[in-house]
Design a protein around this nucleic acid. Sequence first.
DNA 1: TATTGTTATACTCTATAACTATA
DNA 2: TATAGTTATAGAGTATAACAATA
Lengths: 141, 141
Amino acid sequence: MDFDILPELVGFHLRRAQVSVFNRFGRVIARAGVTPGQFGILVLIGANSGLTQSSLAKAAGVERSTMVATIDTLERKKLTERSPSPVDRRSYALILTPEGKSLLTKLKRAVREHEKRILRDFNPEEKDKLMEFLYRIWSAG
Amino acid sequence: MDFDILPELVGFHLRRAQVSVFNRFGRVIARAGVTPGQFGILVLIGANSGLTQSSLAKAAGVERSTMVATIDTLERKKLTERSPSPVDRRSYALILTPEGKSLLTKLKRAVREHEKRILRDFNPEEKDKLMEFLYRIWSAG
DNA sequence: TATTGTTATACTCTATAACTATA
DNA sequence: TATAGTTATAGAGTATAACAATA
């Protein structure tokens, strides 16, 4: 198969690497019943307890309406809760349940292991360079 | 907003950079009525004229059944054709129409311009390093 | 008037399983 | 028996537009 110009394109390599990493990460955490996207949401709620769905949606880069089903799913799994906001009766203060906190701790360990495997033949300087390159591509967007 | 461990994860930066690049690329070629995925398919057909849907699906990393609708779409746009295979009556020989060839030439120019913009503050050594890193991540998967 | 969460709806991308016609 | 293309179907993931409650 001739891939023509594709192997010269950073977009091609970027997508192929990202799909590969996401698939592997997805398999690792599927055992815990969550997806890579849900992991990200749990991290954000864990580190910003009491935030609203709107600010969470903005941080995750999706619409408010999209976040509704995401939070519904996490609530059904008993990982998060919509607690009433003390200051604004329109909104909820999102928090992790004890089970959510406990699972998040385990997931963070799993993701660190996964990252080590991804970067197992990168030395520390290469890892720094990679992170810097990816950050520069994103921030130029 | 506290992103906690996310900015330490290569998976996070990889995804964020890829989404950013794909969105920008998508806007560039949307004027021509095609998506990034369809661009990739056009490149593969262009460089491997007469290939079958099955081999194309395998190269693109999707199921045969998924490729049906993709080719239907490109055919509706008059960019590709299912011509009869001279050797196997079960399969088609996929080819670009003259319009498909002409559009692909323009799209390749657009993607090269787009790549230049993405990498505008990468020097040649950095670009090589980036491509190498992404290739290593994918090939280790 | 503006914002928060929600619903209804639709569209894209993907997979699995079963079918048909060929090989 | 096995393979190429297809269909039916389902499930993520996403967006837009409109709505009620509240600010």
